[in-house]
């Protein structure tokens, strides 16, 4: 790089820097607008709840189906060779737990009724906890 091109570069940087900073302060002004932390948390938790709900749904469907399939296959294997290691206890637990996973809302409702006598109040919908006096 020659001397002249270096000074040219310096000069153009000299012009560009204040212009850029002025532009960025304009651009950031809208982003840095005072946004209440409660609104941010509400939006973030809404997204988190949606994501968790979908993951839970997928896990219960896939996991429950796999457990049932495993239990049926294990039963078949147990009939073929009882010494192969697929224990009857595992097969029965596979049937029960697979069924429970596929009917997961039933478990949540029953467990909540057992503890407090009411349906679950946290249902996955966006809600706010309130404290009255």
């Amino acid at each position: 790089m020659t001397q002249t091109s270096r000074t040219h570069l310096k000069r153009s940087l000299l012009v560009a820097t204040p212009a850029l900073s002025a532009l960025s302060s304009l651009a950031l002004a809208s982003a840095a607008h005072a946004q209440a932390i409660d609104d941010i948390t509400r939006d973030a938790t809404q997204k988190g709840m949606n994501a968790f709900g979908m993951a839970l749904n997928a896990f219960c469907f896939i996991g429950g189906g796999l457990l049932l399939a495993m239990a049926i296959f294990g039963w078949w294997q147990h009939q073929r060779n009882p010494n192969a290691g697929s224990k009857p206890g595992m097969i029965i637990a596979g049937f029960i737990c697979g069924g429970v996973l596929l009917a997961f809302p039933f478990l949540a409702k029953t467990a909540s009724f057992t503890m407090f006598g009411t349906a679950p109040s946290v249902t996955g919908e966006q809600q706010q906890m309130k404290f009255d006096k």
């Binding site: 709840m49 839970l56 997961f104 706010q128 906890m129 309130k130």
Partner: peptide, 25 residues
């Protein structure tokens, strides 16, 4: 801040409760 925490609580209860139920099964 209080309002933010009261949004956060049901979220935590949902995620925590769901995970605990799953882990239990």
């Amino acid at each position: 801040l209080g309002a933010a925490l009261s949004w956060l609580l049901p979220f935590l209860c949902y995620v925590g409760g769901g995970c605990f139920l799953l882990s239990g099964v």
